[in-house]
Design a protein around this nucleic acid. Structure first.
Lengths: 203, 203, 203, 203
DNA sequence: TATGAATGAGCTTTCATTCAT
DNA sequence: AATGAATGAAAGCTCATTCAT
């Protein structure tokens, strides 16, 4: 009746799963603590044993997942050197992540909510990973110089907006578009064409 | 005590201004009707003279503004022919619009909420304008062929994500970054370099 | 555009007609002052020129109509001497009154509401007319002796309950049943059979 | 602090008691959920644990009580055969029921309100019991033939109107008048005098 | 320790009444 | 004098949080 995780953590995993599903699907504000407890097949009191209140729950889940994803995002490009290849891998990571758990994706990267607003801007997050990627490429002369933070935002947006569209439509299957999204993201990043490393770039 | 707008419309403009500010800043769900009435320096009941309920208020404001912005977005590229120039103009339009009213921008383009969810998908909207732009460029051979809807989403994301970042930070001044955002958007769109119209493009 | 009555009374008749229709049809509590003003094609302020508030309006209409009906109820038996004939005439009066204006009938005799509850118990009302009728018959030896007030209530009920049923069903046409209702009312009243004036009566 | 009923049903009985008292005394519309909660010595929210909303509360109480009373009304004549005796027993049942709980009586039989209006017309109710009684007597030749439904309404009215009067006056003690009310009801029903079974009846 | 009934502040909405125009 | 926009108390209902059991 209970999954392994439950036996180990007293139900915290069930709470996470339930909360993320609901936060992603219905939005943070529209999700009630009762919703979560019921979905997690758990009593209200039990839920409050793990999290002091709704906000703390939201914040903790958000922070944990963002940290994890930041790490995995970086890992997804492990072993690759070429900026284009690295960005392509990362884009594919996002697409797969969306297809695997659209609700978590929405909660982490698409929806606006209290937990996201109050998230520590100094903590690791996917945007910073992308920014580091841009910096790296720039320093290697393989990405056009410029405002790295801004460039990272543009790349991020090129990847997230298709996901936002699919999310709103209740669809998955972003993986099938990963190549084309990656191409746009790489162009947005300002990756310089391999054959013309020190030459002209589009635009 | 009353502003010019009020004298003309009986307070509807004050409601719009208040609602948009709050919807944009705090989110739709987190904004209460009382919030809006207080911000509009108006009684609760007076609000209901203009809008039947919160949802209708949200929907009406959203629909009106989206229609207006779609039109203005298209107008912003009037007289320009080159896809790059057109996209640059549109990007600048977005940046200026953000700087002028970041809350309206957030309400219209950044936040998820009921009114956006229930918006008629057949009605004009900024994404469709961008998609038309891509189609046009593609047909002229000045934009790489591909999934136009997806490409439009990527371009949209490249423009919106910087705005989302500024919005979260409570900053304005996106106009100063318009050129660089435009460059990324144009690259994301797959605009072909003028000098190499039928040649290779990055990546 | 205005009826004669209006020209004479400044619209008070329009208010009466509107209020009675709505009080009878939707109930007193469920009828709003705005409803009444709109139905009477009159402004809110104008309405308040005639009646200080909703309660006074309700009370005044109720009191006026009850007084008028009490008079007419008595008149309906004018010229008749036999108790049975008199009660039959009165029952027919009720049935016709219901058919003519079911809403007024409901407001006056069927529905519970503040104005009815606060009505001066010493004022003339249909029940007292019936009670006088019973008294008269009793004193003449043509109606069984007993608790006259109670007997009047029973007669009243025998007449009103069919009307209540029709009212709930939204039907009219009580006139067609007047004879049979009258027969029951006369029996309930304890009218002694003409041929056996000093003899036994049913039960 | 808590009554026995509470210990058994978690407060549902306290809600019923409070709601019926207030619905009966002040009317359904004029009774607020807050009224009920306070009278039941219970919080607002607790009430909603038992009933989804005010309407459901009203409907449930009405339906349950009507069903119970219909049964008890029939039972009150158990073992009796003579129509007059049966109607007398039923009338006494009504009078005792009024004396025992005038507010419940008012809620069930005197007042107009949403729950009564939306009550399933096919479900058992006191009027149908009376109608069956009339039918039975008619078929036995001990009640005058005629429109049975109408006759039942007249009988019902003869019984209810005295209760309505007492209710408005805030009095009880209808039991003392039961015999006389019963006599009127029996006459209204058209019960034929035992000694003149096939003979003439009043009027 | 675990439960979920209970709490009540706060939400959206209605409407009798007032009063500036 | 006449209007109806404005007011705000109060309604029905929700839900984060507490706490007796």
């Amino acid at each position: 009746m209970m999954r392994a995780a439950t036996l180990q953590d007293g139900g915290k995993a069930r709470i996470s799963a339930a909360a993320i599903e609901l936060f992603g699907r219905k939005g943070y504000d529209a999700t009630t603590i009762r919703d979560i407890a019921e979905t997690a097949a758990m009593s209200l009191g039990a839920l409050y044993r793990h999290y002091a209140n709704k906000d703390e729950l939201g914040r903790a889940l958000y922070a944990e997942a963002i940290a994890l994803w930041s790490e995995r995002l970086l890992d997804s490009a492990a072993g690759l050197d070429d900026p284009a290849a690295r960005l392509r891998a990362m884009t594919k990571f996002f697409c797969r992540a969306f297809d695997r758990d659209p609700n978590l994706f929405a909660f982490l990267l698409l929806n606006q909510h209290g937990p996201a607003r109050s998230f520590d801007p100094k903590a690791a997050n996917p945007l910073k990973v992308l920014e580091a990627e841009i910096r790296r490429g720039e320093q290697d002369g393989r990405i056009l110089p410029g405002n790295r933070h801004l460039r990272a935002l543009c790349v991020m947006g090129a990847v997230l907006q298709p996901a936002a569209s699919y999310s709103r439509a209740g669809k998955t299957g972003l993986g099938a578009l990963a190549e084309e999204i990656a191409a746009a993201a790489i162009r947005a990043a300002g990756v310089i064409e391999p054959t013309r490393r020190s030459g002209a770039v589009i635009q």
